[in-house]
Write a protein that binds this DNA or RNA. Structure first.
Lengths: 165, 165
DNA sequence: ATTAATTTTCAAAATTTTTTGAAAGTATAA
DNA sequence: TTATACTTTCAAAAAATTTTGAAAATTAAT
């Protein structure tokens, strides 16, 4: 395979993966493009390489900066902004975990907690609470494990992976 | 909170969680409804409780059966089909992992492998391959860890969680 | 202060995903 | 066989999400 074709394929695959995981396809593609670009790119570069509009490029670049996956690079004497991506894959994974955990896991923990406090006494209530408790057990274990994960270093992660295998 | 309100809140939360994770909101809601129903429900029950159409109910029940999260229950002397959900949360998590891994992780592993085979020699190529290798390392570790996970029992999972914490 | 370069915003358009509901299909009973 | 009860399908409608592009805002240079 040619290098350019390989790059193209990678960008597409990363986009598909992203959209399956609730991350906007274009956002994932911009990320992929920056990951495999030796040089930092400006908005126009990204627009051209991904064939997307200025607004789209701008919005997704900003989202990536929000997620801590992309950084601005100001070139001396240059007016326009250039962008580089976080290259350390462990940091990439970590940032994604932090964001998704906050957006998705934490609200669920809150709901599970809220719905645990029910009035009255009935077999129905007890059965419901049993299910909720069970889910809570999983959810809070996952929550704590992810906390540990994001606060650990790459080495710890790898060791844990190893231990699990 | 009243039991009915709690159930409603739980169903909504489960739906939101699902849709954030690439699982259709209604599918997740049907799942939630069945999880907290003491009795098995028929299509009409589900349509009524979730205020959805017959087609929608049917499709999502079917999908849940596909995912191994819901089972048909045939009542003797009754013509219509009733449905119950997998109640063991560990089995629920396991089935979801199996499905998502197959649908999302495995295709990415294939692409990473495909794009690793590039013609020519250049610094550019080497830089690209470095990034791909790095991602491959993470992806294959995740793949193997998930395999181990789905093939293990609930007890092992809990122990691993414990160890990690 | 004016101009020029660049970034940001956001309403409208395009696209994608989900839902509906009626028709077709299937299975059971009479 | 015919009627009845129920399930499945799928094209069209509705809803949600993403993208566009031009105008507004910002920033820096002259």
């Amino acid at each position: 395979m040619e290098l350019d074709e390989a790059k193209q394929r990678f960008i597409q695959a990363w986009g598909t993966l992203g959209s399956n995981w609730g991350i906007n396809r274009t956002m994932a593609q911009v990320h992929a493009l920056l990951l495999i670009s030796a040089e930092s790119l400006c908005a126009d570069d990204i627009m051209e390489k991904l064939k997307i509009s200025r607004g789209n490029a701008n919005m997704n670049i900003r989202a990536l900066i929000d997620w801590g996956l992309v950084f601005k690079e100001l070139k001396p004497g240059e007016r326009r902004e250039y962008f580089i991506s976080e290259k350390d894959m462990w940091n990439v994974v970590r940032q994604i975990i932090i964001h998704r955990k906050k957006k998705e896991l934490e609200p669920v923990l809150k709901v599970l907690n809220d719905v645990s406090d029910i009035e009255g006494e009935s077999a129905d209530k007890e059965a419901f609470l049993d299910v909720i408790k069970d889910i809570q057990l999983f959810a809070s274990k996952a929550d704590k494990t992810l906390d540990k994960l994001v606060n650990s270093d790459a080495n710890w992660l790898m060791k844990t992976f190893m231990k699990m295998m």
